[in-house]
Design a protein around this nucleic acid. Sequence first.
RNA 1: GCCCCUAUCGUCUAGUGGUCUAGGACACAUGAUUUUCAAUCAUGCGACACGAGUUCAACUCUCGUUGGGGGCGCCA
Length: 492
Amino acid sequence: MNNVRVRFAPSPTGDLHIGGVRTALFNYLFAKHLGGTFVLRIEDTDELRSTDASTQVIIDALKWLKLDWGEGPGNEPEKYAPYYQMKRKNLGIYQKYIDELLKKDLAYPCYCTPEEVEQMRKLAQLHKKPPKYDGHCSHLSLEQRQEWEKQGRKPVIRFRMPKDGKMILEDIIRGKVEFDNALLDDFVIAKANGVPTYNFACVIDDHLMDMTHIIRGDDHVSNTPRQLHLFKAFGWDFPKFAHTAMIMGSDGARLSKRHGHTSVLDYQKEGYLPEALLNYLALLGWSTTDSQQIFTMKELEEKFSLEGCGSSSSTFDPAKLIWLNGEKIRSKSIDEIYALFMDWLKYTNNEKIIDGWDKEILKKAMELEHDKIKLLSEIPNLVDFFFVKEVDYKEEAVQKVFLSDKSKDSAKIIINECDEKLENQDFSAAALEQFARNLAEQKGLKTGQVFHPIRVALSGRTQGPSLFHLMELLGKTETVRRIKTAKERFFK
RNA sequence: GCCCCUAUCGUCUAGUGGUCUAGGACACAUGAUUUUCAAUCAUGCGACACGAGUUCAACUCUCGUUGGGGGCGCCA
């Protein structure tokens, strides 16, 4: 029971968002670091917006990220099950506590309509007061209640908030934060349809599930005093709180769709590696004093601490994420990258791209471009010219290397020479390099003037892998064939 | 409008009163290397929001201003 228990508690109303991933990550790392338990709880009490599809998306995303939950969907110990709030609601778990509060007169039914409450708030704002429920139904007589019931009004249940004093939050990241009770209103703990609200269900579950620490986004700070009052009303110990700063978009506004990709799925589709995304997200709001940038998951688990978390919001920087992804890819073997690439093709339904490609050649081509790969999604474009039947000569390359006044003469000489001599050439990379260098010397040309036309003739582009390794991998037959095609097309 | 949080290079950050002419990383620029593009290495550019205090001494503490963010639902 002394063990640390934390939870990630998303509401399934959409894809898993970047901000959500970071919250999940911090909870996961905190638990791992201390040998505690990381729990996944689904907060689906918003009946209008929650969907099973979105629950599945969240679960799949967490699996892809390898943020394994010790408890939650798929693994529900009897002591705490179930891990879906609507299932818990249907079991009567929350009603028991609502009744307890009602009985102690710490809560009361309120018959005001949403419209009436809205009016109260507007009125309060008009008087430059915080917009809050005015306690209209807080002291209804039995007769008044019966009258409303007779009219068919379904009440919500409100929590009776103390009218004075302060509630103090001791936050691990933020320190002491004080809230004036008088500013808080009697908030709703159960909706008219009997479903508990977030602030209520969250407290009940955090207590029942023995949560020791609540690590969540900054946007929940102002909910915390309400939740704290609930803990207090039940006589329960407070868990420890840590509110992490938010992640912003490049314009300083809260990260949203218009800043580009915000769903984890988008990053998966673009060919990011989970460990790169997680490493980057860890750096957003957390750091070590030695400013280490690149961490393995194991290192993160070892080094993570809430004390290392900053309290000011940070801006999401896609450029650094890409760099980190490149680093992670470079640190892997070709076999690993190849496997990852295959998974990615399958996931994105792009397997047809490599139809007819020789897998061994593909692997070797990837090896030639190893250091250049930043995203799995750019691999096809990096190596596809090895596999095409007809070379796609890029306009720009042809103009620059074959047709410009500056280079057309030397290009013609080189292509003709290659056409004549490559047939009898040893096709090892070293021998090919020797061949090309000799050619340059014989013709009085710079090496570049020799290498560039060959590259364009073979690949149709001005950039690519080391030329002689490219030729070696392409093989003599195909190389000679492509040289002849280029000669026919551009140097007739 | 009310409440809460926050403020170091363009971005992520180190820094806990003197060691700061402020360190690292990304990005950017230049150079080296190379047949190209990358990768790599080297160098450079570049910040303590502002104003008052406290102190022998403030990026570090206090207060205020300004800026930014969040919350104020029968959403979570």
